[in-house]
Computed example of a mutant assay.
Amino acid sequence: MGDLAVGARSGHEGPEERPARSEESVPPAGEDAVPPGDDSGDDNGGQERDSDGTAPAPKKPRSFWKELPLLIGIALVLALLIKSFLVQAFSIPSDSMQNTLQQGDRVLVDKLTPWFGSEPERGEVVVFNDPDKWLAGEPTPNPNAIQTALSWIGLMPSSEEKDLIKRVIGVGGDTVECKGTGPLKVNGKALNEPYVYPGNTPCTMDDAGGQFKVKVPEGKIWVMGDHRQNSLDSRYHQQDKHQGFVPVDNAVGRAIVVAWPPTRWSTLPVPDTFDQNLSAAAPGAFGLVGAVPLVLWRRRRLTVGNTRVSGPRTAG
């Protein structure tokens, strides 16, 4: 008849019959049923098959030579980003920063912190753009094609950039002073300068700019070389449009490491002499606080017992 057995319904109902299942439709105990047409259990891991039922051959990886241009392109982009925003190499062209830096040294300059509003601080060695023809008359290097390419991506210093490197002595609001052979003073406090070139005095006696007392405007810095007798720094540019001061906006970044040659590898920390309180505002504020009680006490002594000033008077 059919796959279903139905009981007669004349008079009373017989026991209910349930659909019969063939043995083929019942999964063996302990095994999961696999829906018809599901290939997930195949050895091919569910991958699509070719028209003849065979699995496709795996794709071959690209050869190294085909991927090399892509790798070079990524490396160039990363190098340009690092040069523009993080770190750049600069070459030391002169002896003005001896012995801290020697001619031919390569230094790495931090260019990241200025992006977050950081400004040069006292004691830092900074690279800055020429503010007003400080490098006039200096010879310009003539690099070859390879050096030009390497400098463009930041792996070598650029010969076209007109940059200088000096130590920051004063920042906006500071008074910097040199008398005689020194010591150099910032806001009236003497600096102990062990970084000054051996045999040099902190201040020079020449009339061209060695003797000075200047107040640094806001947004400017006063810079000097560590080789005081061989550095045309802020002292010798007081007649230019910036009066020897360097605009903060000209600062490229702080030199943090001497990276080359390997025998010269070292960091460039801020010397301890700049850790003392050199603030220009603090001495004046403390002086004012101390002067107020003295003035009040003196005024009280003069007025007590003096009838000429003790009472109110009108102008006559």
Rank of each mutant, 00 (worst) to 15 (best):
N44T: 15
N44G: 07
G45N: 13
G46I: 11
G46V: 13
G46C: 14
Q47N: 15
Q47G: 13
Q47S: 10
Q47T: 06
Q47R: 09
E48M: 13
R49M: 15
R49C: 09
D50S: 11
S51I: 09
D52G: 11
D52T: 08
D52S: 09
G53C: 12
G53E: 15
G53F: 12
G53I: 14
G53S: 10
G53R: 12
T54H: 08
T54Y: 10
T54D: 13
A55F: 01
A55W: 02
P56S: 11
P56L: 09
P56Y: 13
P56F: 15
P56N: 14
A57E: 08
P58D: 04
P58M: 05
K59R: 15
K59M: 06
K59D: 11
K60Q: 04
K60I: 11
P61Y: 07
R62W: 12
R62D: 08
S63A: 14
S63C: 08
S63E: 07
F64L: 14
W65K: 03
K66R: 14
K66E: 09
K66G: 10
E67C: 09
E67T: 09
L68A: 10
L68W: 04
L70Y: 03
L71Y: 10
L71F: 13
L71I: 09
I72L: 12
I74N: 05
I74P: 01
I74F: 12
A75S: 08
A75V: 00
A75Q: 03
A75T: 03
L76H: 05
V77F: 06
L78C: 04
L78D: 05
L78M: 07
A79Y: 01
L80H: 07
L80Q: 12
L81T: 01
L81W: 09
L81I: 11
I82A: 10
I82G: 06
I82S: 05
K83A: 06
K83R: 13
S84M: 07
S84T: 08
S84H: 06
F85K: 01
F85Y: 11
F85V: 03
L86Y: 07
L86V: 06
L86K: 02
L86W: 14
V87R: 04
V87L: 15
A89H: 02
F90Q: 15
F90H: 13
S91L: 03
S91R: 14
I92T: 10
I92L: 13
P93A: 00
P93K: 10
P93Q: 08
S94E: 05
S94D: 14
S94V: 04
S94T: 08
S94G: 07
S94P: 07
D95H: 02
D95S: 03
D95N: 08
D95Y: 10
S96N: 05
Q98H: 00
T100I: 12
T100Q: 00
T100H: 03
T100R: 01
T100C: 02
L101F: 03
Q102W: 01
Q102E: 08
